[in-house]
Simulated scan of single mutants.
Amino acid sequence: MRWNWQQNDWPEFRWDARKLVRAEALFAEGAGVVIGASKHLSVEEQSSLSIELMSHEAVDTSAIEGEPLDRDSVQSSIRRHLGLHGDHRRASPAEAGIAEMMVDLYAQAGSPLNEATLFRWHQLITNGRTDLKDIGRYRTHADPMQIVSGPLHTPRVHFEAPPSQDVAKEMGRFWEWLDRSAPNGLAALPPVTRAGLAHLWFESIHPFEDGNGRVGRAISEKILAQGLSSPAITGMAGTLLKHRKTYYAELERAHRELEITDWLLWFAAKALEAQQHTLRQVEFVLEKSRLLGRIGGQLNARQEKALLRMFAAGPQGFLGGMSAANYMTITGAPPATATRDLAALAAMGALRRTGEKKSTRYHLPILPEPLAAVEMADIL
């Protein structure tokens, strides 16, 4: 078997740009909608939304690699890096590192990417690791760089990257292409095509001892932002996590050839799906602001605390809906008070009631319908 980097014309990737025209147009249109909707948020709401998106991206990109992180700890760490008040909860080295990387990524979203930034990101995502030889630099080990699964005695090799001795040369070509293909470069590419190609190319080189997936997805996110007149967060990691199995399968297939139209179409579909999710979060914050503005002054401290807890669950909603028992746990209210408070919230339109007796649950009245996945056929 010959991997893409072993083929004679590597790294001359080929694709049918005509098939990506609609996807690029939809992405540009969607970015405009997200940016326009965000302008209706207050400065405080914009900051809160950015922190929420960064924390989700940090947790989701780590989850793709099988590393579970605590979202609240990551979010608290992000707030501290931004100089904002936090709850001072303790973050693990991994949580603190990915949080700082996300702040760095989004604070400088529209700026060019360079090797020094890449090495810094690698240092951050490997924060606290003692099992790696090469941190903040390209790998140097002599063993083959392989992605494998299955038992040790009969492993399945999903991909083998170029040997470590070739990484510096390969990354040199990658950096040259990144400059040429930039929005103001000599061979500028539209953002979705450029981000999809950069992700595949970077993953094909696999330049680090570990952490290539997280760094590669950060590169994609940065390139998508660079291609917009006003950089916006696309939030790819959550969508790729949702389609994790297919994501790995599509990457594995693309690693075997240099004709990558199918990979770019799949990546474009996921970028559009992620963009829809981000727009939904913006709209959710707007609806939250309208709802709280309408019922302002009518809430007691318990009701306000419970509502804010439900809003914190985001557009996907409070898992299973709010029950009287949940309300008691969150607010410390006794049973009769919890029942009375919830009934009052429903009466004023702050919550929507479903079920009866022990099955009674309360939901925010602004939760949208679930998002449908965007498929390749939708953008052709």
Score class of each variant (00 low, 15 high):
residue 309 R to T: 15
residue 265 L to M: 15
residue 207 P to V: 01
residue 196 G to P: 11
residue 206 H to N: 10
residue 129 R to Q: 11
residue 251 L to C: 02
residue 108 Q to S: 15
residue 48 S to D: 14
residue 302 R to N: 13
residue 305 K to D: 04
residue 334 P to W: 06
residue 169 K to F: 12
residue 190 P to R: 12
residue 259 E to C: 09
residue 161 A to I: 07
residue 258 L to C: 08
residue 245 K to V: 00
residue 113 L to S: 05
residue 275 Q to V: 06
residue 264 L to I: 06
residue 366 I to R: 09
residue 283 E to A: 03
residue 295 I to P: 00
residue 103 V to E: 06
residue 109 A to R: 09
residue 79 R to A: 15
residue 329 T to Q: 15
residue 380 L to P: 03
residue 334 P to E: 07
residue 134 D to V: 00
residue 122 H to V: 06
residue 153 H to D: 14
residue 370 P to L: 09
residue 117 T to A: 11
residue 84 L to R: 13
residue 271 A to T: 14
residue 218 A to D: 03
residue 186 L to P: 00
residue 340 R to C: 02
residue 34 V to A: 06
residue 145 M to A: 13
residue 88 H to R: 12
residue 103 V to D: 06
residue 287 E to C: 03
residue 258 L to E: 07
residue 242 K to E: 13
residue 38 S to I: 01
residue 189 L to W: 07
residue 115 E to M: 07
residue 60 D to G: 03
residue 376 M to E: 10
residue 117 T to I: 12
residue 309 R to C: 06
residue 213 G to V: 05
residue 336 A to F: 02
residue 18 R to D: 11
residue 91 A to G: 12
residue 201 W to I: 04
residue 244 R to G: 01
residue 324 A to C: 08
residue 375 E to W: 10
residue 244 R to W: 02
residue 348 M to V: 12
residue 82 L to K: 14
residue 213 G to M: 08
residue 212 N to Q: 04
residue 91 A to H: 07
residue 227 G to E: 04
residue 261 T to N: 05
residue 35 I to Q: 15
residue 119 F to T: 00
residue 357 K to R: 15
residue 55 S to H: 05
residue 71 R to P: 01
residue 12 E to T: 11
residue 271 A to H: 07
residue 147 I to C: 06
residue 317 G to K: 04
residue 138 Y to D: 03
residue 223 I to Q: 04
residue 307 L to S: 04
residue 77 S to W: 01
residue 288 K to V: 07
residue 151 P to E: 05
